[in-house]
Structure formats: structure tokens, C-alpha cells
Design a protein around this nucleic acid. Structure first.
Length: 447
RNA sequence: GGGGGUGUAGCUCAGGGGUAGAGCAUCUGCCUUUUAAGCAGAGAGUCGAUGGUUCGAUCCCAUCCACCCUCACCA
């Protein structure tokens, strides 16, 4: 509501969630009572009005109001009508005010919904079954992360908010569904920054009788389809980059891409040789973290290759040591059948040919158990029922997980996760009750 | 956790050791086709918090809090 008073008449701009229209209101048309009502209306009030359309002297289509009704009163003054609301803390803490004032923010969240709908439509068309699995779990697993812990009163047991869906969706593959997926809210009790919020959204999908290359083909089609539906184009801008989803995505291997960028071939090196070579490259590595060949390869890759991956690129065949849930590569037992997709230098998804051998899986759980005893708060606890499920026989399966929030950031050109979550987690302010509640308490007393 | 930055009116911001400033918003008056309408006037603040220095602190110093950026750690 932007008012322009002209003596015994008004012009004003009226907005709804999509558009604005100008209204015109004259004293001798609407009468004294209505005129005074309108005179008392503030920016942010919600009104309903009836009238007829005309075109002003300046050529603008305008509603000449014959009757007007105040539907809802805004008690809190709105931010500046021109400068808007730019203080980021207020924008996140009072998203409603941000949304009222900043139409481009409303649009970002509309796009978020469209992106999720496009993902759902695509997977439905591919005959993937959308399922729901427990968010509140007696045991957590499927990722390396610290969980949120809570307690069930009646059962008197600890319960956890899920950190991933993986183990439940795989149980459904064991149960005979061949294509399942879930849009999952996951919860990780860890640091918060530009890319991380304690609660976030992932898509996980599992595809029986498929391997990681089949999954890559599916993922590529999915992204291309979503980008096209949301942007009406295969090209998008992200920061300084133009990303083109139309050409076939690049496919490189981790070792091959390192060799291409540095000329060094790590594939046949021992751990000691690889570490010595990596250290000699002088790329600021933390030597203490280089505890095995896989870690060395990963560190070199992150330093030399990852920052160069702007256009969509699958990076495949990760070292075994850094891929505990992936199947060993059919041609090379130092590697796994795993890829991550990189776009605009950011990881956009992670997939592998899933480990489906219960004995191997049990061994890996037991290793994790030792890590827990050693104080690793992110190691995974042994899930006996999951092992039991694998004993019933899980077909060869390709699995994929990708962060919905990261994808939304990419497709909306936003650079903080807080800009694509309506209500991002913020620290509690120490102030206690807000001043507004004090003022309203006084008003209530007067009544 | 390390480094850098920010915090002053409802909003956007300036200022500066001696009674706190602007624009917009709000309120009052004038104006019946305006477009960031105009003109005249008014009200509005714990200057993020707590200590210290000082005759005097919003300003200087210390500590703390919140937010942003960045690095580290972590998916």
C-alpha cells in the first residue's frame, strides 16, 4: 500500500503476491466515512475494494474505487518503502517481513518449490516409488555425522533424528521394490555456515539392477530436465559462471583428472611414494591427515582439480579408503565404483554401486564400532537389523544422494543456504521477549 | 576455533570526548489524475550490553553478545 494523497482524492498502489495495481479514490465517489477510513490506512494494511477500471492521464490502468473495506491492520511499521529491508539478520529472523518487502525473495522460494516439483515429476515418470521412512529412529546411520538425540517416554529408550535415509531405503530394495526414493529432511548436529544448516533436505534414490554408471545417466537426465523446466533454458548463471546443462556432462576419473592437471600418475604408487610426491607439490597439505593412499589422492585432487570444475562434471572411481559404503571397482581393487558430480566447483551429488555383501558390511560396522570406542563421535553404530536385511539378499543396486538445498542455491543463484530456507537456524538472542509483546500487553490492559 | 568487518530512530544510513543527525516511514495542516507526488510543521533514540579512563563517554580502552565475510574442522 503506497498512498499518494491529493487533497480530496488518493492514488495508491495495491499489491498481492504477484502483481500491483493502482487504485484511485475520490471523496465524492466513496463518501466521507470511506474516505476517512482510507485516510487512516498505513503501508502494510490489507484492504479489499471494488470499482471500475479506467486509464489515467499518464496512461496507467487504474481502479476507480467505489467501496473499500479494511481486512487487516498492520500494527508494525513496514521497512522503508524504497531502501527495503537489507539487514540480513532481520531478514532471516523475520522472514515474513523480508517476504512482504522483497519480491525477489518471494520468487526465490517459488523457484525452490518448482525445483522440487520438477524432481518429483521426473522420478514419477521414471517409475520411482516415492516413500516415507522414519525420521525418528532408534539407531542412526547411513552417513558420518553426529546426530540429534532425544528420548521416547513410553518406551523409555533413546531416539535419534535421522542423519540419512540410506539404510531404510536399502531395506525397501531388499523387500523387492526396484526403484525407490525419498525427499528427506535430515538432521546433523554439526557446524553451521554458508553451506550447512542443522536441518536440510536431500533426495536419496536407490535403483536395483543398476550400477553407478546407470545412476549417472539418470542423474544427468534429471538435472537437465529440472533446469529446463525451471529456467526454460539449459543455461544458467551462478555468480560469475555460466553453466550449460545441454551438452553431455564430462566424465573423468579422480586419478585421470589429477594426471591431466598435474602430470602426476598416482595409480601405481605406494602410500609412501604418493605421500612424498604430494608433499613435494607444495599445495599446503595437512600432512597429519594423510594417513593412507586414498587420503593422499583425495587431498591432491581437492587442491588441484576441484577448483577447476565449473561445468557439470562427474568425477568417478574414488579410492576405497575414503568410500566405506561403496562397492570395490570391478577393474581395480584400490578404487570403488563411486562418483560425485561437481558444478560451479561444488559437489552436487554422490553415488555408488552399493555394497550389498552382509559379511563385508558387518566388517565395516565393526571397524566403525572401534572408532566409536576411540571417541569418534561421527562413526556409525552397528545396525544389526540392517545386516539381517542384507542377509535376505539385496540385488546389485545403484544409489544416489544429492542435496536439494545446494541444487536450489545453484538454480536460484543464491550463495548462502540461509537464503533458500524460509526459516534458517539462528542463535537464540539473549534479550528474551521482544518489545512488541510488551507494547501489546499494555494495549490489552487498556481494553 | 583463527583472522577481518558490522551494530546509532520503524527502515536505509551519516556523525563524533560537551543536550543526537538526514532521507523514507508515522502524526497535523494545504492540495480532486498522482507515480519514490508536492509544500509547511511535529513527534520519535538505553547510539548492541557490561565495566574502565575522564569533570563529562554514544565516541577512547577492556570484556561480552549478535550478525556478515574468510580460513580451519566437519558432510
Amino acid at each position: 500500500m503506497l498512498k499518494r494523497k491529493m487533497g480530496k482524492s488518493f492514488f495508491a498502489d495495491l499489491h498481492d503476491s504477484h502483481e500491483r495495481i493502482q487504485i484511485y479514490l475520490k471523496l465524492d465517489v466513496v463518501g466521507q466515512a470511506c474516505f476517512e477510513l482510507f485516510n487512516s490506512i498505513d503501508l502494510g494494511d490489507i484492504v479489499g475494494c471494488e470499482g471500475t477500471l479506467f486509464v489515467t492521464r499518464m496512461g496507467e490502468r487504474t481502479l476507480k474505487v467505489t467501496s473499500l473495506e479494511l481486512l487487516s491492520k498492520a500494527l508494525h511499521p513496514l521497512p522503508d518503502k524504497h531502501a527495503g529491508l537489507t539487514d540480513v539478520e532481520t531478514r532471516y529472523r523475520r522472514r515474513y517481513a523480508d517476504l512482504i518487502v522483497n519480491p525477489e525473495v518471494r520468487n526465490v522460494f517459488r523457484m525452490r518449490t518448482r525445483i522440487i516439483q520438477a524432481i518429483r515429476d521426473f522420478l514419477n515418470n521414471e517409475d520411482f516409488l516415492e516413500v516415507e521412512t522414519p525420521i525418528l529412529q532408534p539407531l542412526y546411520g547411513g552417513a558420518m555425522a553426529r546426530p540429534f538425540k532425544t528420548h521416547h517416554n513410553t518406551l523409555d529408550i533413546p531416539m535419534y533424528m535421522r542423519i540419512a535415509d540410506e539404510l531404510y531405503l536399502k531395506r525397501l530394495i531388499v523387500g523387492g521394490y526396484e526403484k525407490v526414493w525419498e525427499l528427506c529432511k535430515d538432521f546433523r548436529n554439526e557446524g553451521m555456515d554458508r553451506l550447512h544448516n542443522p536441518e536440510f533436505s536431500m533426495v536419496e534414490l536407490y535403483f536395483a539392477y543398476a550400477d553407478y554408471k546407470d545412476v549417472a545417466e539418470l542423474f544427468e537426465r534429471l538435472l537437465r530436465d529440472v533446469v529446463q523446466k525451471v529456467h526454460n533454458s539449459y543455461k544458467i548463471n551462478y555468480g560469475d559462471h555460466e553453466i550449460d546443462f545441454e551438452p553431455k556432462f564430462n566424465w573423468v576419473t579422480m586419478l585421470g583428472s589429477i594426471q591431466e592437471k598435474t602430470g602426476v600418475d598416482f595409480s601405481e604408487m605406494s602410500f609412501e611414494e604418493a605421500k612424498a610426491k604430494a608433499v613435494s607439490m607444495d599445495i599446503g597439505l595437512n600432512e597429519e591427515a594423510l594417513i593412507n593412499w586414498g587420503k593422499v589422492v583425495e587431498a591432491v585432487w581437492e587442491a588441484k582439480v576441484e577448483p577447476t570444475l565449473v561445468q557439470p562434471t562427474f568425477v568417478a572411481d574414488f579410492p576405497k579408503e575414503i568410500s566405506p559404503l561403496a562397492k570395490v571397482h570391478r577393474d581395480n581393487d584400490r578404487l570403488t565404483e563411486r562418483f560425485e558430480l561437481f558444478i560451479a566447483k561444488q559437489e552436487m551429488g554422490n553415488a555408488f554401486s552399493e555394497l550389498n555383501d552382509p559379511v563385508d558390511q558387518l566388517k565395516r560396522f565393526l571397524q566403525q564400532g572401534k572408532a566409536i570406542e576411540a571417541g569418534d563421535e561421527e562413526a556409525q553404530p552397528l545396525d544389526d537389523d540392517f545386516i539381517t536385511a542384507l542377509c535376505y539378499g539385496m540385488p546389485p543396486t545403484g544409489g544416489l544422494g544429492f542435496g536439494v538445498d545446494r541444487l536450489v542455491m545453484l538454480l536460484t543463484n543464491q550463495h548462502s543456504i540461509r537464503d533458500i530456507l524460509f526459516f534458517p537456524q539462528m542463535k537464540e538472542t539473549k534479550e528474551g521477549s521482544v518489545p512488541v509483546s510488551k507494547i501489546l500487553t499494555e494495549i490489552a490492559k487498556e481494553d
